[in-house]
Structure formats: C-alpha cells, structure tokens
C-alpha cells in the first residue's frame, strides 16, 4: 500500500463520520425522551379521530388559519350543521378549541415536537399559558367572573 498514512487518516475520518449516528446514540443514551403524551382526563371528544390528528394536525390547523384569517369563517361545521364539542359550537381556534382540552403545551405538543425536532411557528403568536407572565394570560378564575 502506498501513502498508507494519508489513506488511514481518510479511512478513520470516513468511519467516524458515517458511524456518528451510532456513537452519538451511545454516548447520550435516552437524553431526548420518547414522547409521553398526557391526554386530557376530563374530555373524550376531539374534532377528528386519533390517527388522523396524529399525522395531519398541522394540515388541519393550517386550513383553520386560512379560513379564519382570510375568509372570516370561524366555526366548524359537519354535514352543514354546527360541530359541537362539549355542548358548545367548536371554533376553529388553536387556543380556544385545541388547547381548551390539551391545555399543557409542554406535556402534549412538545412531547413529539421535541423528539422529532419540529419547531412549528404556532408559538410565535399563540401563548403557552403555563409559561406566560400572569398579567398576560387571564387565569381561569378571571374568566369565570
């Protein structure tokens, strides 16, 4: 073999680079936790079934956003009738509908998003009420008054 020093350096770099997913998984086992989603205890109904929501919730929210912001259509309908959840007309709103039940971003949204390194820009505008300062988000007792 000729230029064996340089060849070996090249091979070592190749092995390190292409085995990096293996040894990063070894060096920091289980740092990024597998998702552990807390489903709301008191609510059973959702706007769509679980499998659809799991894969397509971002599509749904995007369609809602367009309808509300661009067409001023605010309420969900099903078969031309108002869609009711928990006795109320369901509004196409992340904060008012989704997060009424799934109220804890850290225990619901972030579980998968962090695991898969997804950074949706929902939170550029919408508020995680557990992290917001108290004077920004009215707490639930204020709402009742």
């Amino acid at each position: 073999m000729y230029d064996s020093g340089k060849i070996l350096i090249g091979i070592v770099i190749f092995i390190i680079v292409f085995s990096s997913p293996i040894w990063t998984n070894w060096l920091n086992p289980g740092e990024a936790k597998t998702p552990d989603i807390k489903l709301p205890a008191n609510y059973k109904e959702c706007v769509a079934d679980k499998d659809y929501m799991k894969a397509y919730h971002m599509d749904l929210l995007n369609q809602w956003r367009d309808k509300v912001v661009r067409q001023d259509i605010r309420f969900l309908t099903k078969n031309n009738k108002p869609f009711m959840i928990d006795g109320q007309r369901a509004e196409m709103s992340l904060t008012k509908t989704c997060m009424r039940c799934h109220d804890n971003k850290a225990e619901f949204c972030d579980q998968c998003h962090n695991y898969m390194d997804v950074t949706p820009y929902c939170w550029n505008c919408h508020i995680d009420k557990y992290k917001a300062p108290k004077d920004v988000v009215p707490n639930e007792e204020d709402n009742k008054q």
């Binding site: 920091n28 995007n62 898969m116 390194d117 950074t119």
Partner: peptide, 26 residues
C-alpha cells in the same frame, strides 16, 4: 439526523431553519 439520532445534533435545527427560509406551506 432528526429521524435517527437521539439526541439530535445541534446543526439540524440551523439547517432546517435555513432550508425552510421562505416558510412556504405547512
């Protein structure tokens, strides 16, 4: 790497931000 590395290396987030710079669609 976001699909097979755990934890995800730091560069993935920068690449995703740059790669999706125009924020077209969801």
């Amino acid at each position: 790497f976001r699909f097979f590395a755990d934890p995800i290396p730091f560069f993935v987030k920068y690449l995703e931000t740059l790669d999706g710079f125009f924020q077209i669609g969801v």
